[in-house]
Design a binder for these strands. Sequence first.
DNA 1: CGCTATTTGTCCGTATGTATG
DNA 2: CCATACATACGGACAAATAGC
Lengths: 250, 250
Amino acid sequence: MGGPRFEPVRAVRAYERIVEQIEEAVESGALAPGGRLPSERELMVQFSVSRSTVREALRVLQARGLVRSRPGDPNGAEVLPFSPAALHKSMTTLARVAELSLGELVQFRMVLDGSAVLLAARLRTEEQLAEMGEAVAAMRAAADQDEEAFGAADVAFHDAVARAGGNKLIQVCTDVVRSIVLKLIADRIAAAPDREELMRRSIRHHEEVIAAVRAGDGPLAARLSRKAMYDYYAGYVDEGERSALRALLE
Amino acid sequence: MGGPRFEPVRAVRAYERIVEQIEEAVESGALAPGGRLPSERELMVQFSVSRSTVREALRVLQARGLVRSRPGDPNGAEVLPFSPAALHKSMTTLARVAELSLGELVQFRMVLDGSAVLLAARLRTEEQLAEMGEAVAAMRAAADQDEEAFGAADVAFHDAVARAGGNKLIQVCTDVVRSIVLKLIADRIAAAPDREELMRRSIRHHEEVIAAVRAGDGPLAARLSRKAMYDYYAGYVDEGERSALRALLE
DNA sequence: CGCTATTTGTCCGTATGTATG
DNA sequence: CCATACATACGGACAAATAGC
């Protein structure tokens, strides 16, 4: 029993090995963001492969958001700082291919945003609290006038909350899912008949959340936040799914 | 004011357009999973581009987990069913490049798993409840004997909970983050001196969660679930970060 | 400012190993 | 076993874009 456990050998393509090596170099920090890869011709010498193979590897790395190459750049491909673009892409395809419903996406936002405010109520600094206040002030200033500015201020608020919560993963995921949700229903939101009332109520809810965060009452802030999101988005969610959203309101 | 808002034109590569078209076909359902793309030679005719360009496009699509191509396959590249592989990959690089700490990852799991059980307490069927029970039974059977089987049963439990919660996004994300966390500390977990005690306590916690889910007490089940995860993982998290985890235990 | 060298984007042709019938 | 069609990988070529002189 036991004995040597042989791994099944999958035929690994040449370009895949190149990807692995460069990926390793980037993630280990040997290649810092802003740094440059050797040129394609240099890489084909170093890896002793053809240029096509090098290029396929670079396309994969580019799809993963690690590097970017421009035509004519005398330096090689640029190593990019982290961006949630790749995560955004894969979540978007997940949403479409796995047929995620709007309800599931909104529910996910309720969960993450609620947790972010819960943490923010504990960990926020005075500066971050001020940022949230400024964002809501911007929302108020833009209400009934500038749709886009209102949306941007709303984003700024939730981003400030997520940052104050101190969990980068929550921050990135809320950001990604929010943009997916907005892309799905941006037109319906703008065309809502009771748009102004929704905006006013949203501002009021945001202020209540800030008050709870300032008071350090995390659970209250979380409930208020989830309720605010429910009120704002429930109208666009199928009735059958709304009950699952309400399960998060207790 | 206003006027036509021109978008900045980025030079879009040929392979990128091919990616967009095929991606659109897959996501719109025109190409169902299991279906086949035309062969590379056929694609170079249809898009009227060279072989290299087709191949670079296919590499990108493959990196995004949408298709897979094998040498010698008489049919073209295969359209894959959705798999969280791409999401997994981008989250893993996020964890490394954005320097996510173990604490943040565990915190994220506490949030998602807690929410999943909260929903499961509402929506679970009797079958799903039975699955959870079987998973815990398997954990008990494997305790003190088979490390691997214990871990697999634990995974089965959390997966059953996540499925019962009814949110596919939560399900996928918990799965992805769990595997990242385990990869980070698998060796430390196996080498823990009080390993057996941890396993016994973990089984007890799981049973308490099931009881709360059976009773339909979502908030209690969520608290128990977060507590269970805290107890199991807190020992591997830096002391400075533990307080942020405890913020989720109230 | 234009010129030049270099690099990327794209194309073509070819050879090789592999899977299917 | 053989023939066919396929993906993988190679090498050479040209145009467009970029940076530096």
